[in-house]
Amino acid sequence: MKSYYRQFNWYRWLRIIFLALAGLIIFLNPDKSLNTILYLISAYLIGVGLIALHDGWLLSKSHSDNNSPYTTAVICFLLALLIFPIAHLLLPLLPVLLGIILLINGVNQFFSARANRHYVNVTPWWDYLYSGLLVLVGIALVFNPFDMLRFFFRILGVGLMVLAVMEFINTKLYKK
């Protein structure tokens, strides 16, 4: 039981370090952070793979037939190698695809709000506002993808740093 708890903490601390570094890098310099983030993701995957190898080694010492940690390690190592070519191929398409998805989601949200009205004299203004914002952001991403993408990266960076702080707080709360 103590070994399982230690392994869980290793994963948690690796996640905290990754989230904090990625968030800080993205927030400070969203334009030039792609390669750094890809290296960081690759290092994270290698770290998870190494922890999984250690888990597999501990299981094999206890004469277990469970090979799933080794499978996890191999998948993590392969993803760490493939992340650079895949990311560089898909990144130029990301803002436009995200814009189209948000546009479609906004239109669907609008018609869903109109169709799901339960009361005749109540207008779902918040749903209309939300769907309108989704449509506007979708249009902005389709027609001006890179300026909006920079803004989203900054929001993502702040979000990742907040997640790291929350993960750290949970580590301290559940340590007992």
Rank of each mutant, 00 (worst) to 15 (best):
Y70F: 15
H88E: 14
G99Q: 01
G49D: 08
G99C: 03
N29F: 01
I16R: 10
G47C: 06
L102E: 05
L40T: 02
A20M: 14
L82K: 05
A20D: 10
L38E: 00
I51G: 03
V96G: 08
L34Y: 00
L40F: 01
A52V: 07
S68M: 14
I75W: 04
P92M: 07
V96T: 14
L28M: 07
D55S: 15
N108A: 15
H54D: 11
L19I: 08
L58Q: 13
L91G: 09
L34N: 01
L19S: 07
L103I: 07
G23F: 01
L14Y: 00
P30H: 08
K61N: 13
L97P: 04
S112R: 10
Y39V: 00
I100H: 12
L98D: 02
L97S: 06
F84K: 09
I16L: 14
D31G: 04
F110A: 07
T71I: 15
C76H: 02
I83F: 02
A87L: 03
D65V: 14
N105D: 14
L58T: 04
P69G: 09
L58F: 10
L40I: 10
I100E: 09
I86K: 02
D31V: 07
T36P: 00
S60C: 05
S33W: 03
L34C: 02
L103W: 04
Q109N: 13
A20P: 03
N66H: 14
W13C: 05
W13Y: 15
N29C: 05
L53N: 05
L94N: 06
F27N: 05
F84G: 09
L24W: 09
I100C: 11
L38V: 01
A113T: 14
Y11K: 04
G99W: 01
I100A: 14
S62H: 12
L21G: 01
L50K: 06
G23V: 02
A20Q: 12
A73C: 11
L14D: 04
S64G: 11
I46Q: 03
I51C: 06
R6P: 00
N105G: 08
L91H: 07
G56H: 03
N66K: 13
Q7P: 00
I51Y: 14
I16D: 12
R15Y: 09
I25F: 07
S60E: 10
A22L: 11
G99T: 00
Y11Q: 09
F110I: 09
A80K: 02
Y39C: 13
V96L: 08
L40A: 14
H88Y: 15
I17T: 08
L93C: 10
I100Y: 10
I41E: 06
P95Q: 07
A113W: 07
K61T: 08
L19T: 02
F8A: 15
G99E: 03
L103K: 07
V48M: 04
L59D: 12
D31M: 03
L50W: 12
L40R: 03
A113N: 08
V48I: 13
I26T: 07
L38I: 02
Y44H: 04
L90N: 05
L59G: 06
W10G: 00
S42T: 06
L59E: 11
L97M: 13
L21K: 04
G106Y: 03
F18P: 00
S60Y: 12
